[in-house]
């Protein structure tokens, strides 16, 4: 568990999931993809175990992808290395609070 590891599940993904404890602002993590390729990313926030980090800049209203599929839409501009979660990712489904339900 020493390795500060992030996993990018699919080539189309713009986020990776962190599987390490105690990742603090400024830490460098190693993001691996399904081909075994690795890239190092400096994280810009404290990121808890199992949470996501942006592995590229994601502008507001861009689709956020994991497993190669849409998991939501950016509610703010997000930069590479930033924690991606409910504060900057909007769900597009089950949105009874929005007119028309979704999107």
């Amino acid at each position: 568990m020493e390795l500060k590891l992030g996993l990018k599940v699919h080539d189309a993904d713009n986020v990776a999931t962190i599987f390490a404890e105690g990742i603090e602002k400024g830490a460098e993590i190693e993001v691996r993809d399904q081909h075994g390729q690795a890239q190092r990313i400096a994280v810009l926030n404290d990121i808890p175990y199992g949470h996501k980090v942006a592995i590229e800049d994601i502008s507001k209203d861009t689709l956020i992808k994991k497993y190669g599929e849409e998991i939501g839409i950016a509610s703010h501009d997000i930069v590479k290395g930033e924690h991606v979660h409910v504060h900057n990712l909007d769900s597009m489904r089950g949105r009874g609070d929005l007119e028309g339900g979704r999107k």
């Binding site: 409910v86 769900s91 009874g96």
Partner: peptide, 25 residues
Amino acid sequence: LSVGCDMREGQPTPGNIAGGLSSIE
């Protein structure tokens, strides 16, 4: 949808969200 709110926190649950899941998708 018929309840008129964002279903997030109902699904995913607070525990799911704490565990890193950001949306029902």
